[in-house]
Simulated scan of single mutants.
Amino acid sequence: MGADRRRSRVLEGYLDTRRAPARPARDAVLVRCQADVTVARSWRLRDVDCCLIEGADVDVVPYRRNAVPRPGADERGIALGFVAAGSMQITQDRHSVTLRRGQVGLYDGLTPFALHSEVPHRYLVAHLRRQVVRLRPEDRDSLMARDLSAFVGAAALGALLATVVEVGEDPMPAAGQHLGDAILACVLAIVAESRGPAVGERSSLLFGELADWLDAHLPDDLSTERLAAEHFLSARYVRKLFADHGTTVTAHIRDRRLERIRDELLAPWNADVPVSAIAARWGMRDPSAFSRAFTRQFGEAPAGFRSRAVRRPRDPAG
């Protein structure tokens, strides 16, 4: 057998769309390939960082300079893979799945994984932060590096990502926000399908009712106790109900408020409204606590987020 002529390289920052020049990349992989891989495109859709990679005959594994992960490393969260052309094998925790064109797969960015392809391919990899996709331990075992083709959510996600790749250009900020939401909705649908009837239809309906009530009262002073009292439930039961759905009442309220605030920061009619006033409008009245929560959730301070969105050039034809 001839010698392996493939060479190795470290690919850093291919998913880190918020990377600053002086800051180390949040992501890095070691790539072995005969013909160098090409990052055809990188872009961001709300909470989803995307990268389209083209190559052939590759093996990919995570790369870390330090044995001990740096603070914030868990932000890497879940990786979503989509094959736009060719095929890609994902291996993690002794599980392995080969994705064909149009198929999607999930793997954990913190746990060792391996990607392998012997054919020319176009592979989209997306990063979903842990704050927006909360998985139970059993979810990881049933979804990471597994065949997801039986799930309706996976079929919908594959069709959506195929369209995103084919368009070939970054959407305007408002459209990108909604596309990111759609990707996350499909992933959450896959998670819900994988859990089957364990949570129970009645429990799911009640959770939806409570979540809708919270959405309608986000500007108010909210707590688990108030939510329980408004629906004639015990606080203990409400806590368990939210835990069964992978979250807490406090986290759900915070995340929904931050989403509303982020949307309002993008609205042109709010350009002259102070960030703190928009936050207070949605029940986050402590500017320091709000700024920390926003930065932790979205990777940048609210003022910087608004400034970056405003500076983005508009389509002359629009």
Rank of each mutant, 00 (worst) to 15 (best):
G304N: 11
R130E: 05
A211E: 11
I78N: 00
L161D: 08
D4K: 03
E118H: 12
G102F: 05
R32S: 15
G86E: 11
C33D: 13
L135P: 09
P313G: 04
D27M: 11
L157E: 00
C51G: 01
A145R: 08
R9F: 14
E166I: 00
R44T: 14
I278N: 01
R281V: 12
D141N: 02
A56M: 07
L128G: 01
R65E: 06
L45T: 04
G318V: 04
A229V: 10
V68G: 02
V238R: 00
V310Y: 02
R101I: 01
E54G: 03
F298L: 02
Q92M: 08
A228Q: 12
V199F: 11
V133H: 15
R76E: 00
G200D: 12
D139I: 15
Q297R: 15
A280V: 06
P197N: 15
Y63P: 06
R140Q: 06
R256D: 00
G77P: 13
A126F: 08
A211F: 01
A114M: 06
I278G: 05
I261R: 01
A114L: 10
R254W: 01
L52C: 07
G86D: 05
P137R: 00
V125F: 08
R5Y: 14
E138L: 15
A85P: 07
V249F: 12
G55I: 09
A156M: 08
W213F: 14
D181L: 01
L128D: 05
I253S: 00
A309L: 04
V133L: 15
G208E: 08
T247E: 04
